[in-house]
Each structure stands twice: as C-alpha cells, then as structure tokens.
Design a protein around this nucleic acid. Structure first.
Lengths: 220, 220
DNA sequence: CAGTGGTCTAGACCACGGG
DNA sequence: CCGTGGTCTAGACCACTGT
C-alpha cells in the first residue's frame, strides 16, 4: 500500500481514517475491525490499534471493551461538543495571554484582519481559514498553558477539516472580520472581562454557521 | 515483575510511572529510556511506549523527536495549568447540565454536602475527596458532552493523586462545604450566570489551597 | 464454544542527534 | 558514525461476547 511517506504508519492511518469519518465516507456506526484495517493498510495490528486509540481520544470513535471500535455519529451534537471544548480552551488561552501582550501584537492582529477582509470578497476558503488560524494563534501566543494549547490545537484541526467540507455562509465572512475587530478593540481598551465574552460570541457564531452549512451538506 | 493483575501492562506501567512522577520519586527532568523501563517492568518495548505516550498526553512528560521522553517539572505552573483546564471543563459541564436537572438532584447534592461537613471535623482525607468527587459528578451528570467529560475526568484523577500527597489545609475543609452550599443555592434559584462564577471561585479556592500545601510539602 | 477483541512478544530496522 | 529513539512485524495468547 501507500505507506511510503516518511510519516509513521499509525499517523497516516489516523489521518486517513479521520478524513474518511468526517466526510462520511465511512458511515456513522461502522464497526472498525482490527483485522480488516490491518489488511487494508498492509500493516500489522499494532499501528492500527494506535490510530484507533488516538481517534477514540479525539471522540471520533467509541469503544466498548471487547466489542470493538465504532464510528460515532458526526452530527450536530458532535459538532456542538467539540466547539464547546475548543471555545472553553480559547477563553482560557486568551485570558492568560492578556498580561503578556505587546502593542506590536495589536498591529499584527489588525493587519491579519485586514487581509481577511480583502479576501472575503473572493471567498477563498483555504486562505481565509489559514488567516483566521493565524489571528487566533497570535491572540493566544503568550499563553503559558501548553496543556490547554494542545487540546485547543487538536479540536481546531478537527473543525478545520469539517469546515473544508462545508464552507462558509456568505454572510459569515463579514461577521468574522467584524467580530475580530470587536476583539481587537476590547484588547486595546484592556477590558479583560469583555474579551472572554467576545470570544464566546465569535465562536458561537462560527459554530452556528458551521452547523447550518453542515445541515445543508447533509441534506444533499 | 508484578504484572500479575488483570489490567494490561501498559496501564499498570502508566499508573506506576504517574504516581512516581507526581510524588517526585522520579525527579523532574529525568530521561525515561525505553530500554531501561522495558527491563525494569519485564516487558517488551510496546507497552512502555504506550504508557509514555499517554503520560505525554496528560502533560506529565515531554517528548522531543529522537531525543526521548523527559519528566516535566511538577511545579506551581504545572498545577495551575491542569487546574485551569479542569476548571474550564467544569464550567462547561455545569452549564450544559442546567436544563436537565431535577429537584431530586438538589436533595442529593445537599445530602452529600452534609456528609462532607460531618467528616470535615475528623479530617478523613480519602472519604472527603471521594464525596467531593461525587458532589461534582452529580452536578455534571446530565452533561451531554462526553469529550469534555473525558478531559475533566483525566485531570480530576491527576489532581486527586496530587491531593493525596499534599492533604488539605484545615481551614479549607469548611470552605469546601460553604462553597458547595453557595453552588446549591444558585441552582435552586436557577441562576445560570452565577453558577459558572461560583464554580470558578470554588476551583480557584481548591487550587490556591493545593498550591499552598504543595509548597509546604516541597520545602520539607 | 466459536469468534473476535485486545494485548504482548522478541526481535529487526531505519532515522536522527551528538560527539 | 555510533548510539539510541521510534516504529513495525508476524504471529501468539487469553478474555470476553454472543449465538
């Protein structure tokens, strides 16, 4: 098989399965059997097992002892759940980045947001998502909590993959830059309490939009 | 070695290493070598590897590619970090349990808190911690977010282990039941906004107390 | 009690890092 | 360039599930 790249087999298997689960190529409820997968990827049981355990940690598969791994339902509830966790981490990261922020960071945030605004007219999905990611990592760059950062990054990547499959609503794009501006304002004013609320608002907006797009994608 | 119990080797190794890291038996900065550990536990490389990867996921060891696993510093920053994550999850779990709570749950919470109060005079550490755990799992029992629950449980267990090594300050015990009462009151009044604030207050209290006890334990 | 899940072995192999 | 880290193999084995 195509286990040719430099990456370890368990990582490749993990990425492939994740993509296939999220896109629905492997339907919800499918039983993932060790033997089948080992056969499919041309590897021994151990790398398959590791991939499945990781996906279980991500919440994409469920496991009952001695009853194997099963693909969960990628439904609205699941999307809500990962958004809730990611948002909680973002509130935390934003909060403990505050004391360390420099003026130059605010300039950087403004510049990124202007780039997003410029692209929004042309709906260039991947670039917008990349810039949005950059905006938020800049916002959280001084966080001193690597555990929270890791959880954040895990679900950011997952939502990114979902977003690639669903796209944005057209009115969401203007909302993003507006909400980023609000966040920048609250930082300049040094208003810590507001920042958390604005981030939650921003993330709830993102979630609502993705849920809407997801429902549309499902109904096709 | 004593790989006799029914649990898988990687779990036993994980638990042993976690305990030893938290108690300082394996000092911060120690390089954990696959070969040494495999030898020590009388197993092959794979279970050792799995245990280390899990501990890395918990944040107890760091790993640089091709430079092995290293025990992190169990210091105030680390304790703060895991408390922040756990607290964020608890706020989330409490928030989305609210719509499903029944009156009987409130009675149960009151009963648990009374038991804690009764024990507090005798400073029975393990029982108090168990009841505290029960109080909070009751508080979050209707959460519909299994991903958040799993993260919560992971760090709850870690903090529990730390607490076993440090104990409570004597004045903390009264504080716990008081803050639990405040939480119960806010639920009875249906005050959602307050609940999150009270949980954060409760958890910050727990963190400050553990940090204080930790410093004392360190200085001995 | 057959089938499968879950784990472990005892090495082998390659890639990388540091002297 | 040697040592070690990191991963994989190709089975074996036991525990549990469900028919």
């Amino acid at each position: 098989m195509s286990m040719n790249v430099g990456l370890p087999a368990y990582e490749q298997i993990r990425e492939i399965l994740r993509e296939e689960i999220i896109t629905g190529e492997i339907p919800s409820g499918t039983n993932l059997k060790k033997a089948e997968l080992a056969d499919r990827f041309g590897v021994s049981p151990m790398p398959v097992r590791e991939a499945l355990q990781w996906l279980k940690g991500e919440g994409l598969v469920s496991a009952l002892p001695h009853r194997g791994y099963k693909v969960i339902s990628i439904d609205e509830d699941f999307i809500r759940n990962i958004f809730e966790v990611r948002t909680a981490m973002e509130e935390l990261l934003a909060r403990n980045s505050i004391p360390h922020r420099a003026d130059s960071d605010i300039d950087k945030l403004i510049a990124i947001n202007e780039k997003i605004a410029a692209l929004s007219n042309h709906e260039q999905l991947n670039e917008i998502v990349s810039l949005d990611k950059l905006f938020h990592t800049t916002l959280y760059q001084y966080s001193t909590n690597p555990i929270a950062s890791e959880i954040y990054e895990k679900y950011r990547a997952l939502i990114y993959t979902l977003r690639k499959n669903c796209g944005f609503s057209s009115n969401r794009l203007a909302e993003i830059t507006d909400q980023h501006s609000e966040i920048i304002d609250s930082i300049m004013k040094g208003n810590e309490g507001d920042l958390e609320k604005l981030i939650r608002k921003h993330k709830n907006g993102a979630m609502d939009d993705l849920l809407q797009r997801f429902k549309i994608a499902q109904s096709i």
